[in-house]
Design a protein around this nucleic acid. Structure first.
Length: 492
DNA sequence: AAAAAAT
């Protein structure tokens, strides 16, 4: 979701009263998403609009080639009951909530978006895209394409100053998004830098002249304070994994501060919040800081939870989890694609890695406590396919896109801080690391004890999706389950 | 008593 500038209105300082919006430039689009239910509420209802945005529609909005609907918007101050109008007649209704008279339609071709020849060339020859696709939560490149296109499309190539800013929750996402942007913008001559790339460059004293900046908020804030990053020309601000960026016990303060600062410098700034998940609490908060946002949702059905086969493996003792990895997963992994094993703590990542290595099982591990060069190396080797199995904390649970990943193991089932409440969103993001780009994927949840079993039961009920059991000591069953999930084929 | 970022 996003909005026009309303410089002095914001967050906790203001109420949800809505202001008259200016018409130019257009308010931005939101790619929201999957998880739509309140934390303390019942499982999400399918009737509600949720899930990520349509690439066509949102990219359309981003490129500023908005088409206005004939019917006037319903003027209701309460966003939640504001009229939702269908703008896409394709399968699975894409819904929008607009904050002013702007209406979006979806573009059928990239040409409709009013993009430059150079940008079109990047889409066709570099990215190998043929036409705008709907944003698909399972493919990951849908949302990324959308905001990357939005940033590239808004840059004035004649102005050599920072004009687009993208904020991400992790270093790995920064690197990934920069790679995509540089590919897509290959022929545009648009320059880009990131906080991750800066770690390998000389220390920054002089002003940044690159037109697109991608970064994690800590260093971005540092750059802004030191005036290394001049924000006066920034006209578009993107938050990737925006619900994470707005979580109260996480990045919310930094995000709010940054929005405030950038708005002060440029009241007209376009703000975009993207995620595959937006629970009600985060959505409400987002509507406070970015009131009058235009919102775009795709239905939960398209989150493709069903293309990822999910199982539970009940292990009598904790030690049996390691046994399952050694006896079942690792031997089978050799034949499959790549695997990510998610654990809850940094310490588990380290120790599990050590145990597997000691037994001669080749794998790597990553967690936020490692030094940056080491993290980069682990990720690079995994992307190259040099390593097949990666043990990770939730540092990689969101957005990390490696096409070859077919298997996700929840060595620890995802729980909230209280260690009891299932972390539904984290679960969805984790298993979404497999089955990228419409490929096959499977997820195994290793379960020991009642508490963990309960967590899996709740996740199963929440997503209305069965998580059947596979015996922990029956290799034949594992093989047949993987075959059923379509992972044993060569196309995995 | 987690993880994510940074100084």
């Amino acid at each position: 979701m996003a909005t026009n500038g309303t410089p002095t209105r914001w967050a906790d300082e203001v109420d949800e009263e809505h202001q008259q919006q200016e018409q130019q430039p257009p308010a931005a689009a939101a790619a929201a998403a999957a998880d739509d239910s309140d934390d303390d509420g019942p499982p999400p209802g399918f009737e509600k609009p949720s899930a990520g945005a349509a690439a066509g529609a949102a990219a359309d909005a981003l490129a500023g080639s908005l088409k206005v609907s004939e019917e006037p918007p319903v003027d209701d101050p309460d966003l939640s009951i504001r009229a939702e109008r269908l703008i896409d007649d394709g399968p699975g209704e894409i819904k929008t909530v607009v904050a002013d008279s702007t209406m979006y339609t979806s573009a059928k071709t990239f040409e409709e978006l009013g993009l430059s020849q150079e940008l079109l060339q990047g889409l066709y020859t570099e990215m190998k895209f043929e036409r705008p696709s709907r944003i698909q939560a399972h493919n990951g490149s849908g949302k990324t394409t959308c905001f990357t296109l939005g940033m590239l499309g808004r840059v004035d190539t004649q102005l050599q100053a920072p004009q687009a800013l993208c904020v991400c929750p992790t270093r790995e996402l920064v690197v990934q998004n920069q790679m995509v942007l540089e590919r897509m913008g290959k022929f545009t001559g648009i320059t880009c830098t990131s906080t991750a790339a800066a770690d390998y460059a000389m220390s920054r004293r002089t002003r940044i002249h690159d037109q697109v900046i991608i970064g994690t908020h800590g260093k971005l804030r540092d750059w802004m304070q030191k005036r290394v990053l001049d924000v006066r020309s920034i006209r578009i601000l993107v938050f990737d994994e925006a619900d994470e960026m707005l979580k109260q016990d996480a990045f919310a303060d930094d995000t709010v501060r940054m929005i405030k600062q950038l708005r002060a410098a440029n009241p007209q700034i376009q703000i975009l919040l993207f995620s595959a998940t937006f629970n009600e609490r985060v959505k409400r908060f987002a509507q406070k800081i970015v009131p009058d946002a235009n919102q775009v949702f795709i239905p939960k059905e398209e989150l493709s939870l069903d293309v990822i086969k999910q199982y539970r493996v009940c292990c009598p003792r904790g030690a049996d989890k390691v046994k399952v990895l050694k006896d079942m997963i690792f031997p089978l992994c050799e034949k499959l694609g790549q695997t990510i094993i998610f654990v809850r703590t940094r310490e588990t990542a380290r120790s599990l890695h050590a145990v597997m290595e000691k037994e001669g099982h080749k794998c790597t591990s990553i967690e936020g406590g490692m030094d940056k060069q080491a993290r980069d190396k682990v990720v690079k080797e995994f992307r190259d396919g040099t390593t097949k199995i990666l043990i990770s904390t939730d540092v990689l649970s969101r957005g990390f896109d490696v096409t070859q990943v077919t298997l996700v193991i929840n060595f620890d089932v995802p729980v909230e801080r209280d260690l009891q409440t299932p972390a539904f969103e984290t679960y969805l993001h984790r298993i979404g690391r497999s089955g990228r780009f419409g490929r096959k994927g499977a997820a195994f949840n290793l379960v020991t004890g009642d508490a963990e079993r309960r967590v899996v039961d709740e996740i199963q009920a929440y997503f209305k999706h069965d998580i059947p059991e596979v015996p922990y000591d029956d290799e034949d069953q594992f093989v047949s389950v993987l075959k059923k999930a379509g992972l044993t084929g060569d196309d995995a």
